[in-house]
Design a protein around this nucleic acid. Structure first.
Lengths: 176, 176
DNA sequence: GCGCTGATGTCAGTCTCTGTCATCACCTGG
DNA sequence: CCAGGTGATGACAGAGACTGACATCAGCGC
């Protein structure tokens, strides 16, 4: 991340990263499938937080309640694990490069699919579960963007709640 | 697309594509920034359909109405331009390869941003517009997946309408 | 015919990523 | 204490995506 922040992602060669880490290029590729993957290590665990929160919710929880539970759990972990400053630094690197945005979108799409599967396991229908999975990711993404914006002081969890509330105002009774 | 369908995306070299097209590798890269980009040419125009539909809607149209207008227009174009069989063939290639999924997600993210901007231009707030932009893409994606599924006979537009209706049932009154 | 312009070819080179084999530390059983 | 197995690393060679620089050549206006 130091190198990426200094020279940019593309200008930083894998050889340079490996040297800084004190290993060879070959070893780098044994730990990371990809040059981009450096910035996305540990995404599966993050996914697990969302999924577990849905699975652990009390029986009879509404679909809406499951979404709130997943978002709260995910948001809290992200806040507490590394903090906002780290998130900002990482986010700056990613938003500066399309290749990295692609990879992030792929990870988010996987998160959406995981949430969808967890909702289906709780009895939701296929189509609504998929839409809800996308919704979770969308609300998370929008809240995250606000969270790392300069000057923002509110909690990520709070911003997510706010976003979710905005969604329910989006689609009034007369949809379709 | 012939080559991709035969040998798969990764196994197909740019040299092979160029040869089939009767040009050199260098010329290929003058027309496509990327090997993947071959499958995503003309995405800007598709984006334009959504944006134009929003801009062209009669004054006073509700936010919901704008989303319906955008989805209807986009769905219709996709159906009429190349047809379902072409969409299926292309979709098979993309779903078989993660690199291509990444690129598709990036294009969809751009579509979302474009829709967001169009909604903001119609007076929507920043946060709801972003969520609505994501929503449009989400509904489109879910409907498209159903549309290209084997055995499906319904219209893309119809499936989108159906998806949008499912969304409004997702978020009842007591959200947040 | 002259010179301009745009499209293409040629060539050399960088960088990412992969397969293969050698090396070396560490452990384990005899 | 040593033979042999195992896992991590290094060393190399090579394929393939992409880029920059320059050459070529057809078509066009003058």
């Amino acid at each position: 991340m130091e190198l990426f922040a200094e020279d940019g992602f593309e200008a930083t060669t894998v050889a340079a990263i490996a040297e800084r880490a004190g290993v060879t290029e070959r070893t780098f590729f044994r730990y990371f499938t990809d040059k981009r993957e450096v910035l996305f290590a540990g995404e599966e665990e993050f996914e697990g937080v969302f999924v577990d929160a849905i699975a652990a919710a009390p029986e009879g929880t509404s679909l809406n309640g499951l979404l709130v539970a997943a978002l709260d759990a995910g948001g809290r972990v992200l806040q507490d694990l590394r903090g906002r400053d780290f998130a900002r630094a990482r986010n700056d690197i990613i938003t500066a490069n399309e290749q990295l945005q692609e990879r992030e979108l792929l990870k988010l799409a996987k998160l959406s699919r995981a949430v969808t599967a967890a909702l289906v396991a709780r009895g939701a229908g296929q189509v609504p579960a998929r839409l809800a999975g996308d919704l979770v990711v969308s609300v998370f993404g929008a809240a995250f963007a606000r969270w790392v914006a300069p000057g923002e002081t509110r909690d990520l969890v709070e911003l997510q709640r706010d976003g979710l509330a905005a969604v329910s105002e989006l689609t009034p009774v007369e949809a379709g």
